[in-house]
Computed example of a mutant assay.
Amino acid sequence: MPDAFTSSEDRAAFIAGLPKAELHLHIEGSLEPELMFTLARRNHVAIPFASVEEVRAAYAFSNLQDFLDIYYQGMGVLHTEQDFHDLTIAYCARASADNVRHVEIFFDPQGHTERGIAFETVIRGITRALDDASARYGISSKLIMCFLRHLSEADAEATLDAALPYLGRIDGVGLDSSEVGHPPAKFERVFARARALGLKIVAHAGEEGPPAYVHEALDLLKVDRIDHGNRSLEDPALVARLAGEAMCLTVCPLSNLKLCVVDDLAAHPLRTMLDAGLIATINSDDPSYFGGYVNANYRAVADALDLSRAELVTLARNSFTGSFLGEADKVRHLAAIDAYA
């Protein structure tokens, strides 16, 4: 099979059939406007939009905080276990259609408990949907509980306390929300505690924050994976370290474009990451808000950077090698990619 594509359609067809995992997906960020309206009616919640079109028109962001303001507003329609189930199974259906075989999804319990929604309600709805998705679509999953970094470490500690009865369903903890001004060091103690409990550790770092935040995530939080990591490229020694430690980066191209982390996908650093030997992956982040699920992210950045078959295969392979699956499962998925390619 030749390495170059003859057309965008040829590349899109290849991407469609490529087995892949998604490692950076905020389940609340997959809330489509149609479901937002359905849940608002179901739960008698007033929302400041008159139509689906008006919601989509509001998705014009100039930075991360602009997005977060409407993100937290949108999740206000989620009230019951069934709401969280419906949200999660809707995402899994779209992932399956994109030939995603494994997902590692984030959820933000503090965004719900501070609204009076019980932790139990959130996790039972999500995990029931993940079980349904396994039976219905054959998708395996891992669940990562994120701490909101604009809140205090004490609040994160209380969230970890609430999670203790459910650790059998939680695979890791992460750090998200407003990055600038909230360095990873702020959460060093709660992450040490989570690590001692056997949880995997991830953190958003180097999206809008400086390379120093990536260093802190590595040295203080002792992460197993970096979410985003774009600004790592500003520090050659950091790049060398990330490559040497085989640290996976969960990159989100359409998110980067929508939040003005990059001005143009043609200037996206993904190929630079691959050329530097970094284990970069492609993910959708908050697909309802940023204009596309995982295949849309693959297509957009592959067209913009003219990625080859070999580069796309590398990205798909990275999505499994960077996952928290066991080695036998990784080998099985990598063999499927090799057979396809």
Rank of each mutant, 00 (worst) to 15 (best):
1 M>N: 09
4 A>M: 05
8 S>W: 00
9 E>D: 13
21 A>N: 08
30 S>W: 08
32 E>F: 02
33 P>M: 09
34 E>Q: 14
36 M>D: 00
39 L>I: 00
41 R>S: 14
44 H>F: 00
45 V>M: 09
52 V>E: 12
54 E>H: 03
56 R>D: 01
56 R>A: 06
60 A>K: 15
60 A>D: 08
63 N>D: 15
65 Q>I: 13
68 L>C: 07
72 Y>T: 05
75 M>C: 06
76 G>K: 12
77 V>S: 14
80 T>M: 10
80 T>H: 04
83 D>Y: 03
87 L>S: 09
91 Y>E: 04
100 V>K: 09
101 R>P: 12
101 R>I: 00
104 E>K: 00
109 P>F: 10
117 I>V: 15
126 I>T: 12
128 R>K: 14
135 A>G: 07
135 A>F: 05
143 L>F: 12
145 M>P: 09
162 A>T: 04
172 G>Y: 02
172 G>C: 04
180 V>Y: 01
181 G>F: 08
181 G>S: 07
182 H>L: 08
187 F>Y: 13
188 E>T: 13
193 R>W: 05
193 R>Q: 13
194 A>F: 05
198 G>L: 08
200 K>Q: 13
202 V>M: 09
215 H>Q: 12
220 L>H: 04
223 V>Y: 06
233 L>T: 03
243 A>P: 00
247 M>S: 00
250 T>R: 05
251 V>G: 02
252 C>K: 04
253 P>L: 10
258 K>M: 04
259 L>A: 08
261 V>P: 11
265 L>W: 05
269 P>G: 03
275 D>L: 05
293 Y>L: 08
294 V>C: 03
300 A>T: 06
304 A>I: 10
306 D>C: 11
308 S>T: 15
310 A>E: 13
316 A>H: 01
320 F>G: 02
324 F>L: 08
329 D>L: 07
329 D>V: 04
329 D>K: 02
337 I>T: 07
338 D>E: 15
341 A>C: 12
